[in-house]
Design a protein around this nucleic acid. Sequence first.
DNA 1: CCTCGATGAGACATTGGCGTCTCATTCGGT
DNA 2: ACCGAATGAGACGCCAATGTCTCATCGAGG
Lengths: 183, 183
Amino acid sequence: MAVDREQVLTQAAALLARRSTTSMDEIARAAGISRATLHRHFAGRDALIRALEQLGIEQFTQAMDAARLDDGPAPDALRRLITEAEQVAGVLAFLFTENQLFEGAEVNAGWARLDARLHALFRRGQEEGDLRIDLSAAWLTEATYGLIGAAAWAVHEGRVARGELNHSIAELLLGGIRRSMEK
Amino acid sequence: MAVDREQVLTQAAALLARRSTTSMDEIARAAGISRATLHRHFAGRDALIRALEQLGIEQFTQAMDAARLDDGPAPDALRRLITEAEQVAGVLAFLFTENQLFEGAEVNAGWARLDARLHALFRRGQEEGDLRIDLSAAWLTEATYGLIGAAAWAVHEGRVARGELNHSIAELLLGGIRRSMEK
DNA sequence: CCTCGATGAGACATTGGCGTCTCATTCGGT
DNA sequence: ACCGAATGAGACGCCAATGTCTCATCGAGG
């Protein structure tokens, strides 16, 4: 009965996002396995965290690929990305809040690659005139992460319905909260 | 030579926001005091965290008071709040990311009060027709926290200039990132 | 100059979690 | 029904951090 590695990591992310000091024992029990088995699959806490980083980066990379960031208007691409990212929001939320992680070089590199792609999308949107230029692309990148994390947390806490997650993030990002005049 | 309690807490927040497992020793050294003195002022790690929560709640409460959330159009009030909150962004960022904290009843109550005030502001804005109603006030509240946290982090990492912090948060929140047609 | 309160430096025992191990049990495939 | 791999339960030593203590030093105010 092979343990579902991804399932364990997803559980771990949920717990660690909420309390970063969650013990291995708690993680194991939440994943429905024993601490011994957890150790059999992940050499130690560090290895578990590394695996989580890796999973997050892989999943987010896939989301970016699926969203075809380079196709069409940047706002549309951004909507597609948010739709794709929704499914990995939990793991992403963990990665955003655990800033301590990015000290190892290789992880940093993987993350920087994602960062660059999102940054490039915003930059393209600005150059094509679709996005405002008084907000730096760097800030838009960070803000997007922040909103995805906030949304994942809000859903987790039951403050926002899961079905509204997409709309909430995309509309807030693209349109802002002010009531538009056209309506 | 009385230790500047607030200074110590601010330092601690900066470290803990970056790595929540930072040891008491590291916190003490960062604050320029010895571990013994740190323990003399805060009974233990828990007490330090509690004090941080308290400080964050107090400072954010003051920011809300100073912003006069009930006066004038909601968007203007929100701008004022962001301006006031900028100075306490560091401590706030820590509070947002450390979700584990809100398990004690009394802390929860203090935080819930702040939550309610911000929530009420958004609700008022929606009722007065200034804010769009297809995004729930609860989500706007969470999103605001997320953006403040993201901004504080971005500034800390040097990706956003401190002077742009206000503008970045307020404009993104109110207007979104899309280039408006009127321009 | 003296005194007292606060601080720094360090020793010490305690604790909670980690990592490793063993052994019994269970599950899946044959 | 059988066998082997995987798992669960628990014991064990280890270690880093914690919390408490003592003692020397510093510094401000009388």
